[in-house]
Design a binder for these strands. Sequence first.
DNA 1: CGCTTCTTTCACTATTTTCTGAATTGTGTA
DNA 2: TACACAATTCAGAAAATAGTGAAAGAAGCG
Lengths: 160, 160
Amino acid sequence: MPRDAAEKYVERMGAALTSAGLARLPSRVFAALTVDPDGRMTSAELVETLGVSPAAVSGAIGSLSQIGFVHRERERGSRRDIYVVDDDAWHRAMMQHDATYAPMLAALDDAIDVLPPGTPEHRRLFVMREFLRFVGTELDAIGERWAVRLAEIDAGLTRS
Amino acid sequence: MPRDAAEKYVERMGAALTSAGLARLPSRVFAALTVDPDGRMTSAELVETLGVSPAAVSGAIGSLSQIGFVHRERERGSRRDIYVVDDDAWHRAMMQHDATYAPMLAALDDAIDVLPPGTPEHRRLFVMREFLRFVGTELDAIGERWAVRLAEIDAGLTRS
DNA sequence: CGCTTCTTTCACTATTTTCTGAATTGTGTA
DNA sequence: TACACAATTCAGAAAATAGTGAAAGAAGCG
């Protein structure tokens, strides 16, 4: 792939991820890793590719690995870390909806407890809670269906 | 509901929404509207409840209405707007996944075009694109199932 | 050990974001 | 039209965030 086409992809995908809520540098790092042939890059490579300091890369990798998009590896006898995109990063991210919803559900639980039942606001929050629970279980189901789908895709790509 | 219980809910839910990616004040405004008995508040009420300026409320309502969480109404013969939570705000938000995914898909399309097929990076981006498409259609399906589910819940709440 | 190489932490700066206050525009009443 | 009141816009202040550079901290190897 032409170098500047890759760069363009990194910036576009980075921006898209950023506006989807992921912090800026983590977004760009993730994007860069996804176009890398083996999905493995050192800190130095990321510094070079993205034009930021090693410190910034370190921070970005920290947050990416916390949310399970990336993990650290190190070849024996080397002292440089290699950062690797997890193949199931997206799948994993989707399964992590609990982290997002749990605080909302907690707030709703408490409010619903206190509100007099039968009032419109009680009903509204009750329905909201049902929605979040519903979506949570549905997302888990999607995750499972994706596993199946992925296997099919793999089969297709391998065959061809 | 005790006033400070409501306040606590507003702040907790607001914070949860914020960390889910919605801007701060819009998050708090939305939360405040959801506990309001009729889900309808004027600018002055929001200013009072949240302790911010009218200008800030105006901005927050702007972004909330853009994403379809809230809409403006006005009683005839009045010159003050009333802001109303849309009952299907969540549903609507979920259906809006296109806005989030489209830029990513666009970036992927271009990159996939340029990458030599058969390479690992081509495969990785290809799979990513499949994932996003898959999730998009699945979310639409969830939306439909939620409509059904909501009807059931309504039936249940009405009966009791 | 001590030297080298890389990563991480921390204090600081630059940038961005968020909100305010003042001025402006819009909307309804007389 | 003029008047009154509410919403909005905009320039700027304040606060939060992201990223830098320097120093400290691992980890390998002689």
